[in-house]
Design a binder for these strands. Structure first.
Length: 532
RNA sequence: GAUCCCGUAGCUCAGUGGUAGAGCAUCUGACUUUUAAUCAGAGGGUCGAUGGUUCGAGCCCAUCCGGGAUCACCA
């Protein structure tokens, strides 16, 4: 009964084959897909459900291996494992396979004289199928700890072939050498589920990302700050310089914007006294170009803490980032680059602190602290920094900084005290005219955090918005929009406070060594795919 | 948005104008401790799409689609 040659099918299989033929007319199947559908129907015809409901797994692969290593040499502890078949080696009356689960891989071993008729089912198994297996653990002649299968169950039949990645372990270095990688970026992004199955390193990256977020959340929670949720759909957007996405609410017949920042809503909550520290970790959306540092939707963490200023916030950020780095990287919290471009980033405190003027002095030799707009213009030209006509002093300083300083800031470095005109939500510097109390943290040449002593003078804030409106009327599409309700909130009185925002994606890039934001986003934005 | 590169079998890739290839995967056969299993054989292609040049196009040209990189823009 078991040994049905593939060419002679019982009636019910023939019926099933009709379905396959119909499917084929809509969308031609490859030989491998056809083969797998045949196996699927054959399992059903043998009374075996290829998609059962559950399985009683007792060990992850690494636990099963540890169990054997820890027990006495003659013992053969039992375990039942479940996972995806990643390799099959058929040896006639015996068969080896590797099964991958969350923790890793374990080899399993089938013997025909022990499994009897069940052994014949193995011919219907393919790479990619998900199975559960129960047995005892032993070590093979060649030394691999292996589950000797006493019973097994098919938990999900895969009817599409998985890209096969062959791996070997270098006998000298012990490193894994990969032979047929699944490396096409487009396929990896579009079919992330396949990428995750096949590429262990990307699984690690996303687990690290998750660890980063949970560490941040715990850090905030432990200090008594309150996690909140604010609107994603907003009638007025604000809190950053960016172009928004626009959407439409049918019932209200009204256009709404997807938020570009959480800032103005979080501040309203501080006004209300919901808590003296509030934070949100969530997606923001910016309708701008995409490249390896920009994604149209990205994850932002923002926190606002009453009665604190930016000096306090700097120490807070340092403590936070050290905690995060510690949680995801082995001591001494360093990592070296993958594929060039990445230096070694050392998160050992204290981080360097440098004013923006001093950083420009250090890397260009020019002291711009007392220059007027004309002098700045000449300096920028002398330094070979291209400046657009009509740029104000703040913009010129920013350009010089971006061109001449930023890429030097590999080790975590706080840059402090920014020109007023670039920071319409930050408080004036208490001693330095024309500057605001603001800092950004740079790591590996990229800005990863931004903070200020928050502006709480409602009249000053109104004036700053009006200046933004002036820029907007001159054609600056990214200038901020005046938010009358936010001003009303400030007029009720907002305590002095420090605010911080930082991008989770870029932080993850720094801590995992990924060089593109798409490699730290599970489902990066892509043009729609034409299904075949 | 601009420029450059790429698109060939399920995956990774060769193929510079003359009958579409390799490795892995798949199928058939052998094999009861293998491990990039091995050995013997077989099947598998709208060469991203459309149009053009040519006796003849995977290859040359144009347009389009998709991706990547660089730049521009950009918290």
């Amino acid at each position: 009964m078991i040994h049905t040659p593939p060419t002679e099918h019982p009636e019910e299989i023939k019926d099933a084959l009709h379905h396959i033929e119909e499917a084929e007319q809509a969308e031609p199947l490859t030989d491998q897909e056809r083969e797998r559908r045949h196996s699927l129907e054959e399992l059903r015809s043998l009374g075996i459900e290829p998609y059962p409901y559950s399985f009683d797994r007792t060990r992850y692969s690494d636990e099963a291996i540890a169990l054997f290593e820890e027990s006495n040499p003659d013992a053969h502890p039992t375990a039942s494992i479940a996972g995806r078949i990643m390799a099959i080696r058929r040896m006639g009356k015996a068969m080896f396979a590797h099964v991958q689960d969350e923790a890793g891989k374990i080899q399993i071993y089938f013997k025909s004289n022990e499994l009897g008729e069940r052994y014949d089912l193995l011919r219907l198994l393919d790479i990619g199928d998900i199975i559960g297996a129960k047995g005892f653990i032993f070590r093979t002649r060649t030394g691999e700890i292996t589950l000797h299968v006493e019973s097994f169950e098919i938990l999900a039949k895969a009817i599409r072939p998985l890209p096969v990645v062959k791996e070997e372990t270098d006998p000298v270095t012990g490193e894994t050498i990969r032979h047929d990688a699944f490396s096409d970026k487009e396929l990896r992004y579009r079919q992330r589920y396949v990428d995750l199955v096949v590429n262990a390193d990307i699984r690690k990256t996303f687990r690290t990302r998750s660890k980063i977020i949970s560490t941040i959340r715990r850090f905030f929670d432990e200090r008594g700050y309150l996690e909140v949720e604010t609107p994603i759909l907003q009638p007025i957007y604000g809190g950053a310089y960016a172009r928004p996405f626009i959407t439409h609410h049918n019932a209200l017949d009204f256009d709404l914007f997807l938020r570009i920042a959480d800032e103005l809503y979080l501040k309203r909550l501080i006004v209300g006294g919901l808590a003296e520290g509030v934070y949100e970790i969530a997606k923001d959306f910016r309708n701008e170009g995409m490249d390896k540092n920009h994604s149209p939707e990205f994850t932002m963490a923002e926190i606002y803490i009453a009665y604190k200023d930016y000096e306090w916030m700097m120490s807070f950020v340092e403590e936070l980032f050290v905690a995060v780095a510690k949680a995801v990287t082995p001591p001494p919290m360093e990592r070296s680059g993958i594929g060039g471009g990445w230096g070694v980033v050392n998160f050992t405190p204290p981080f360097r602190r440098l004013t923006m003027y001093d950083s420009i002095l250090e890397y260009t030799g020019r002291d711009i602290s007392r220059m007027n707009e004309d002098e700045l213009w000449i300096t920028a030209k002398e330094l070979g920094v291209g400046i657009e006509k009509g740029s104000g002093a703040g913009k010129i300083i920013d350009e010089i900084f971006s061109a001449k300083v930023e890429h030097h800031l590999i080790e975590p470095t706080f840059i402090t005290d920014y020109p007023l005109s670039m920071s319409p939500l930050a408080k004036m510097h208490r001693t330095k005219p024309g500057l605001v109390e603001r800092f950004e943290l740079y790591v590996n040449g990229h800005e990863i955090a931004n903070a200020f002593s928050e502006l709480n003078d409602p009249l000053d804030q109104r004036a700053r918005f009006e200046e933004q409106a002036r820029l907007r009327s001159k054609g600056d599409e990214e200038a901020m929009v005046l938010d009358e309700d936010f001003l009303r909130a400030l007029e009720y009185g907002m305590p002095p406070m420090a605010g911080l925002g930082f991008g989770i994606d870029r932080l993850t890039m720094v801590l995992t060594g990924e060089e593109s934001i798409r490699d730290v986003v599970l489902f990066p934005a892509m043009r729609p795919e034409r299904m075949r």
